[in-house]
Write a protein that binds this DNA or RNA. Structure first.
Lengths: 298, 298
DNA sequence: TGCTCTCGTTCTCATTTCGAGATGTCTGGG
DNA sequence: CCCAGACATCTCGAAATGAGAACGAGAGCA
């Protein structure tokens, strides 16, 4: 009599992927089964959930109303499993997300400490943009994540984990900000940025606008090392936390320029879902976080 | 991969009933199936959820942690079904609960009006005590209920539906409160009360204590008519809303005594679950409620 | 117009799961 | 010592599930 959770999860996947074929791949099954599950769900509910058109499926009104329930129930199911298995001792899987920059300089020590204290926890780390991480935490695919402030969401708990100072990074030959401004053409330097969704990217855009380089060229990169390497090679400038740049292997090949705007200071938050149950592994992780020396790293 | 909702519902039933045999009856199935579902769930989770002893089953720690999730997911499933089917036009089932007294005098007109405006809604009415009604609303078996104030609960929305004046009802021969006090023995009259959980009953207890009849005999009845009949027959006194008594068929055979304590005034609230989706049938019902003349019935 | 690619649906079939009833086992009480 | 209550186990037929193959409809293109 109750709705089948497998059907609901399938339905969510189809809604997210926009088509049965793609959803089938994601779910590691064949199309026909996905079709079946969706049809079963539609039969149970008595209404069409998707409009079929030649390029995939889009949600109907009923589908849109159902989707948030499907997602919440799937999240609850995961949480229920953890809660039931959790006897108070941190163990089992723990999925943490992080911005690339935080992962590079803040987490190695923290993760080592965590593993020392709670060896039974299998921690997986996923790096992504702040926007994707927040989505992941809300959807339940991540237990917690390090993201750039500010984040405001009723379903999220957040705490400041680190303070970062953003600095402008350029090739070594620009010894100061003024040298940089003088040494670049009117349209400004090339800006090396992460993919959309990265908060630091937005700050860099803002900075370039303030400098009078609103139309500066963007060059999109995926990795931190790649970015610093390109800067060292003189391809352009970028904006990164000071701690990241100073510990870079290519420290000697680049110039660091402090900024005196107030927003060069940015907090890294640790966010987690508000939920009824305290997941021990996650509690253990946050207890490592608040263990002094990590938190107040400048 | 996700937990099976049928298993969770079965699990909830076993937890509530305290045994597989009773749960099987409630679920309209046989014991063996319930055993299977519970074992399947325990296998999936990897922990025992019940302690088996000769007189039934009791929850283990893991079971206690799981139970609230199981209940919430079951409630979400019901709500999801309604939300998906609900296209904005009030129709389908609507389960309303009410105190017996409210049902007797306040609801007949309201329900008639509601049915006239929204004939496609199949309304079912259940009368019970305030305590049971609140539980029903929280569990999702009722969409809304008329209960006695005060109710404070974070998951409930409430609005004043009616104002009631509680009056003491006695046999006809006691023409006034003083006559009643004089005409009864030192230990006080027999108090005719509803079953435990009824708010009016608590008020009556309070009243008798104030009158100096703390040990007055209680006589428990199930129906309103039965209660008034017994009062008319001189078996004792009771406390009821004035509107109920005045419209009683046995109005001429009883005496009504107004009370001048402040708590003789009591509000009847309409409570419903806070939920993401606005269920049209319920919205239609509350719109009838707020349609003036019903609300401010003295 | 005809070809082809993409995508969803339908059909079939082996496998698994489920539900009902009957039977087995354990415990406590008369 | 046997019985009653309660849960576990076994078996069997029905139903659901998942994988694969074939089918059909529409879009883009020559």
């Amino acid at each position: 009599m109750p709705l089948d959770l497998i059907d609901l999860v399938t339905f969510s996947a189809v809604a997210r992927c926009g088509g049965i074929t793609r959803a089938a791949e994601e779910l590691n099954t064949v199309q026909s089964n996905v079709t079946q599950r969706v049809k079963a769900l539609e039969a149970e509910i008595g209404t069409a959930l998707f409009e079929r058109h030649s390029r995939g499926m889009t949600l109907t009104g009923a589908g849109r109303r159902l989707l948030p329930y499907a997602q919440r129930m799937a999240a609850l199911s995961r949480e229920a499993l953890l809660a039931a298995r959790d006897d108070g001792e941190p163990k089992g899987p723990l999925a943490i997300g992080s911005m690339e920059t935080t992962a590079a300089v803040r987490l190695p020590g923290l993760l080592a400490e965590f593993h020392r204290r709670f060896p039974k926890v299998t921690l997986t780390l996923k790096t992504a943009t702040t926007a994707d991480l927040v989505t992941g935490v809300l959807e339940g695919t991540l237990d917690g994540a390090f993201v750039a402030a500010p984040i405001e969401h009723g379903d999220l708990l957040s705490a400041v984990a680190f303070h970062e100072e953003l600095v402008l990074v350029s090739a070594l030959r620009f010894s100061s900000l003024t040298a940089l401004r003088a040494g670049t053409s009117g349209s400004g330097p090339t800006a090396l940025v992460f993919r959309t969704g990265c908060t630091y990217r937005q700050r860099l855009e803002q900075l370039l606008t303030d400098f009078g380089w609103p139309s500066a060229v963007r060059f999109e990169l995926g990795t931190l090392d790649g970015m610093i390497g390109c800067v060292a090679a003189g391809m352009g400038v970028t904006l990164l936390p000071r701690a990241v740049v100073e510990r870079s292997q290519q420290r000697d090949e680049i110039s660091i320029h402090a900024l005196d705007t107030p927003w060069s200071r940015v907090d890294t938050l640790f966010v987690q879902r508000r939920s009824t149950h305290q997941y021990s592994a996650l509690t253990g992780f946050t207890s490592c976080l608040t263990a002094a020396d990590h938190v107040i790293a400048a």
